[in-house]
Design a protein around this nucleic acid. Structure first.
Lengths: 332, 332
DNA sequence: CTTAGCACTCGGTAGAATCGAGTGCTACCG
DNA sequence: CGGTAGCACTCGATTCTACCGAGTGCTAAG
């Protein structure tokens, strides 16, 4: 679709623009690696590339800037899928070697890591609810009118639900309910629990019923999101209004989560500018990758930055981190 | 310290500057409420106020701008501690009337609420570890080499700790350890647990020991922080570099938590500019209030914004939300 | 003590002049 | 005939100048 030379010129423009954030002129391109023609020839080619929509001139007599189509071609035609610089690779290794207390903490830290590696804002979506069996269910008395249902699942997560009780429910009743519930629920898949039979004691049964309901009701779309390095958004743009809009998006967890899911669903790893499908992000790009737990897609990680981000670096970082994270979460 | 007239003039300057973000001149002040003298007189007074450090002139022949000292006087001499506008008050009421699933979610939402009310960035520090008794402790087998210690505390929180086990530890051993641990720990205050006596079985004892250690080791300074409305930081300043610095601070949870604690410890509700003690926040002010659970100071809420924020509004919002939040958390 | 009046200051803005990176075109060359 | 040197031209950015006007400080009068 683009001959070798045009392709090299386009690449040179993108690379230089990513580095300098300034429109790049034919003279610079002519000096670039892999382009062995004069600036005049480059000019001719560039004007064709512009006609075909890969480049754009901010104003007559300025250099050229890549369009979304230009970036798209660039990322689709990366030669060697870049490796992370040694130092970063080491950082990642050290990170995952370090002990992490709990998954939540690890994901929060991962977000920070990604942001450090890429100098971009990063997002990490926690694993959604997985197929898991109930390992333990227990009712604990909190007060005269409330008990706490604590459920341990086979994926290592712990859920708690506050259960209201009629005043003066005896401790024995709670204990009985707890045992009864556990005996019918432990070992089963959390998604299809069989109803718990009645015990005969109405007091116990109310409690069991409420606990059972709490257990089965769908968790509140609980895809926890960890955002890191928002301050790097402020480095990326000089229009403060743009920064505000992007930050505002990042505050809406749900929007971000669906954005990432959406991008992956379209089979992409990179969404450039309007490809994100969100107007306020038209000057941003997103690089994403899923991570796995036990071979199952669990969550998503990604970075968000200006369309002129360093794609090779971002892709490498996201890929490596996603792999390591998968490994770490699977091995346990 | 300042006579009535100077005081009124200072107030007028602060109020106008908060509203317009422009240096304010004597003519404007002369028209303000409570100042019934000519602009010439105002000029004289202002020049005295400047000499005394309450006002500052960005350049000769520009209007005056409040200094930190000026803001300080302003907040220390607010006439009536402003009420929240009816609409906001209603918003707060509605918010706390609404059901909230868990404390964490409620705090996150509270942060959003505060930010909406004030149009500033808000921070909410979750309750620190309280004096609490252990209601339940349980070991659950996760895999052949790991168990999960699940502890329920009387304040309704649930802790989990992953415990490593020697390969091939039998389920009975875990069960025994669980029972043994629970019997010596339930009902006790979490802060001073008596050591658990040995059982005779070395396998069980290792497990008990590890679980006990996990339980007593100080929680990782776990004062969860909820930050809301970071995008409003970008509205507040036009120097993008300032925004970046502030965002960068907000990313360091620990720093923010200690900042808030520090301000309260100094007996302040408002820290203005350098009073925050942080260089990058010298153009920011913080308004904070503690909230309580069962009459005990539990956590902190606050807002962060430019020094020329609307203090009366911020103070009112923070106070109201802190009260309501305390009530909500105490009543249960 | 207050205020009207006035000369003065100086940041901000608008317009003109200049600069230079970069282009498109044309004519020449291997 | 594709590639290249040369050149006139464009136009945003920068600099400089002139000017405007909000605002001040001072003085003199009420």
């Amino acid at each position: 679709m683009l001959d070798e030379r045009k392709s090299a010129i386009l690449r040179a423009v993108v690379e230089e623009y990513i580095e300098t954030a300034q429109p790049v002129g034919s003279a610079h391109v002519a000096q670039a690696d892999g382009v062995d023609v004069s600036s005049a020839t480059v000019r001719n080619e560039m004007s064709i590339l512009e006609a075909e929509g890969f480049l754009r001139q901010p104003h007559t007599s300025a250099g050229r800037v890549p369009t979304e189509k230009g970036y798209r071609f660039f990322v689709d035609h990366l030669r060697t899928p870049t490796r992370l610089p040694g130092k970063s690779a080491e950082e990642v290794r050290a990170f995952f070697a370090r002990a992490h207390l709990e998954v939540e903490q690890m994901l929060a830290d991962t977000s920070r890591l990604l942001s450090d590696l890429t100098n971009l804002t990063s997002v990490v979506v926690a694993p959604g609810p997985v197929e898991a069996t109930v390992l333990s269910a227990q009712l604990v008395v909190l007060s005269t009118t409330a008990a706490l249902l604590v459920v341990v699942l086979s994926d290592g997560t712990v859920e708690k639900h506050t259960i209201e009780m009629p005043e003066n429910t005896g401790e024995e009743v709670v204990a009985a309910a707890s045992v009864h519930l556990a005996s019918h629920v432990v070992g089963q898949r959390r998604e299809h629990l069989n109803p718990v039979p009645a015990t005969g004691s109405p007091e116990t049964d109310t409690l069991v019923k409420r606990a059972f309901d709490a257990l089965t009701e769908p968790p509140p779309s609980d895809e926890q999101l960890y955002v890191g390095g928002t301050s790097r958004m402020a480095q990326a743009f000089d229009a403060i209004e743009t920064v505000r809009e992007v930050l505002s998006i990042l505050e809406q967890q749900y929007v971000v989560v669906s954005l990432l899911r959406d991008v992956l669903d379209r089979g992409l790893h990179v969404a450039i500018g309007t490809e994100t499908g969100m107007k306020p992000l038209s000057e941003c790009s997103v690089v994403v990758a899923p991570y796995e737990v036990e071979g199952e897609r669990a969550g998503t990680i990604g970075v968000l930055g200006p369309t002129r981000m360093n794609y090779p670096q971002a892709l490498a970082a996201v890929a490596v981190v996603s792999n390591r994270l998968s490994a770490r979460l699977t091995e346990g």
